[in-house]
């Protein structure tokens, strides 16, 4: 289940890119003398910004350190958020309230056990996402090398996933089915 934060990521990247492009464009423009302030004639060490910072170093550096810490914390938070994936559901509501709930782990275990019992399936992994009222399932199945993929896929969709939808009374529950083939072959005597 990737792609949960794609839109936010894209927006942040576009904004940051636009800011940096604007800064670069401004520097190029200054070098070509567009602002007519004598910028291209200055030497490298004659830097008014650095001179200003040097003049106010007593309060400038502590504030810069604080700002950098905040920025670092935000970056770390973002990284964790990206790597951890979408939040897992805990309890799924059955009747739309907290009066009747089914544990997401119970649903996960039941579905995993059913899919893993099928012939041609090496391993299955089920995740339950979303909010308590509208859960979503992510199902990742590893097939054995000699499995008939179309057959197993049909069986998963028409039995296991249908059972899950039936149990939750949610015929429209979105499910992401991810099939892979492992190198292991099924139990067979040769």
């Amino acid at each position: 289940m990737r792609g949960h934060a794609d839109r936010t990521n894209r927006t942040i990247m576009i904004v940051l890119g636009a800011i940096f492009a604007a800064i670069g464009g401004a520097i190029i423009a200054a070098n070509t003398g567009l602002f007519a302030s004598g910028f291209p004639q200055r030497t490298l060490l004659e830097n008014p910004a650095v001179a200003w910072i040097g003049g106010h170093s007593t309060w400038f550096w502590p504030i810069a350190a604080a700002a950098a810490t905040v920025l670092g914390a935000l970056a770390l938070f973002w990284l964790i958020k990206i790597l951890r994936g979408p939040p897992k559901a805990h309890d799924i509501s059955i009747d739309g309230s907290a009066r009747t709930t089914v544990g997401a782990t119970a649903l996960r275990d039941a579905l995993t056990n059913e899919i893993q019992s099928y012939r041609g399936v090496d391993a299955a992994r089920v995740r339950v996402y979303g909010d308590p009222i509208q859960p979503r399932l992510g199902v990742k199945v590893n097939l054995t090398a000699d499995a008939r993929v179309a057959e197993v896929r049909n069986r998963i969709e028409q039995q296991a996933l249908a059972h899950a939808r039936e149990a939750l009374d949610a015929p429209q529950m979105p499910v992401t089915l991810d099939l892979g083939v492992s190198k292991k072959s099924g139990p067979r005597v040769e």
Partner: peptide, 12 residues
Amino acid sequence: ARVRISVTDLVA
């Protein structure tokens, strides 16, 4: 007043 039911396992 209220019967709260939480299904914590599904038995095949």
